[in-house]
């Protein structure tokens, strides 16, 4: 059985972690079950819905379609890594513009938004819709998500961002 296991080291939300796991463990299971980071959700488990989206070396990926061993030596950011002592502007955008109802897709939607805004800080509505094509939301009809992303982009582009951020708790 030994050869079916692999030792992986990666950085998750800034912290280096090493675990010996079965090679077939998916990144999403590694995050949720090995590290207890249950903010990353498993929606469809067939690479369609995007609820499991995390950043891998800064790029949005569906963590149900990445093996944990493929993240070897890389940096992973999950929804837990977004927030500090204040809401991240993207979280604030989703909160202010009601970018969620049930909240199940929200961690993935926010991570995809983080990537989108890192590539394009001023996306048009069309670019937001294309950018979030890999996220399935069954509640909002996407309208409020688009507004949330627009609001987040505004917050991130304005210098007074820290003053406006909402304290957590």
């Amino acid at each position: 059985m030994g050869e079916l296991q692999t030792t992986v080291t990666m950085t998750v939300n800034g912290e280096r972690v090493t675990r010996t796991i079965e090679s077939r463990v998916l990144l999403v299971h590694f995050l949720r079950e090995e590290l207890g980071l249950t903010g990353t959700h498993v929606g469809c488990d067939t690479s369609q819905c995007g609820a499991c989206t995390v950043l891998l070396d800064g790029e949005a990926v569906k963590s149900c379609t990445v093996l944990a061993v493929q993240a070897m030596g890389k940096a992973v950011t999950t929804i837990e890594g977004l927030e500090t002592d204040r809401l991240h502007p993207i979280q604030e955008g989703f909160w202010a513009k009601h970018g969620l109802q049930c909240g199940f897709c929200t961690p993935g939607a926010m991570m995809a938004t983080t990537y989108l805004l890192s590539q394009n800080p001023n996306p048009t509505e069309e670019q937001i819709r294309v950018g979030l094509d890999g996220i399935v939301c069954r509640c909002t009809g996407y309208e409020t998500i688009v507004r949330a992303v627009q609001h987040a982009a505004q917050l991130m582009n304005s210098s007074t961002q820290t003053e406006r951020s909402t304290e957590v708790g």
Binding site: T53, A60, D133, G134
Partner: peptide, 9 residues
């Protein structure tokens, strides 16, 4: 191809 996450992999 696919969506943004698919294109990243």
């Amino acid at each position: 191809v696919g969506d943004l996450q698919v294109r990243n992999r």
